[in-house]
């Protein structure tokens, strides 16, 4: 399995258990790659640069034959292609693009436009949304070692380094912090009303996806804005956010509805 793409490596954020629920928001965020493209016949560097620049911005891409999505022509945004090195046969590229842009296809298409043919030799993903190579990238061996140390020696220090609090995976979203007393009702499906809000990022518009956090920084849920940030600040009541994906389990914060007085 996977023999067709042996030399594909790099940043693959893996969410565990409850955090699986937010993985979509990371999945659909932008990516950065370093890619080795092999040209089937040499072209001048000038010509290559010219063609590469045609592949930045909005490009049309039909997903490869063997792909998991419908093979209709899609428009993808390539933010940047930088030619790092060129030998006349191999081109080392750094590419920043929108999620779902196929690098293998991009290399192939560049080859077609150049008229000499080309294919992708090697690919390394250097960024997936908020996760980059230089911020705590760990190898499978590191994970295995940390688990071994925990299971055999009862020490969780390495495990706590290898695994990050899942909250980091939503760092690129605007955030809303809620009062302790709002948490449990949100988990049970209630919308977030203005009085439950402690603070929020500016610039939120109705329809935006936001992350709802407790005052301790725990991710409660992903939600959709019904109000703008400014409205939340000026209004005294009303529904500000509707929950979309609840991450936090019930029972950690007190219930505050029905009976107002509840001694812990």
């Amino acid at each position: 399995m996977g023999r067709g793409y042996p030399k594909v490596t790099g940043v693959l954020p893996v969410a565990l258990q409850r955090m699986t629920r937010v993985v979509g928001s990371v999945m659909h965020s932008s990516k950065e790659y370093v890619c080795v493209m092999q040209l089937h016949r040499p072209v001048s560097e000038e010509r290559l640069r010219e063609v590469l620049s045609e592949f930045t911005g909005r490009i049309y891409q039909r997903p490869p034959v063997r792909s998991s999505v419908k093979r209709s022509l899609r428009v993808k945004v390539v933010h940047e292609i930088e030619l790092l090195e060129y030998t006349g046969r191999y081109a080392l590229l750094r590419i920043a693009s929108e999620a779902g842009t196929y690098m293998r296809k991009l290399c192939w298409d560049v080859g077609l436009v150049l008229g000499v043919g080309a294919h992708m030799r090697e690919l390394r993903r250097t960024r997936t949304g908020p996760f980059t190579e230089d911020r705590g990238l760990v190898r499978l061996q590191d994970v295995a070692e940390a688990l071994y140390r925990f299971r055999e020696e009862g020490k969780d220090d390495l495990l706590r380094k290898v695994v990050l609090p899942g909250e980091f995976s939503i760092c690129h979203l605007p955030k809303v912090v809620v009062r302790d007393t709002a948490v449990e009702s949100l988990i049970h499906g209630a919308p977030l009303a203005v009085p439950g809000i402690v603070m929020l990022h500016e610039g939120i518009k109705p329809g935006d996806t936001v992350a709802v956090l407790t005052l301790k920084g725990e991710l409660v849920a992903l939600a959709t804005a019904e109000m703008s940030s400014e409205q939340v600040i000026s209004e005294r009541r009303g529904i500000a956010f509707r929950l979309r994906r609840v991450v936090m389990e019930p029972g950690l914060y007190p219930r505050t509805w029905k009976r107002r007085e509840q001694k812990a």
């Binding site: 994970v143 495990l159 695994v163 990050l164």
Partner: peptide, 11 residues
């Protein structure tokens, strides 16, 4: 911690 965790894994 693990239940709410994420790993920045090098594939």
């Amino acid at each position: 911690y693990i239940e709410y965790g994420v790993i920045n894994l090098d594939k």
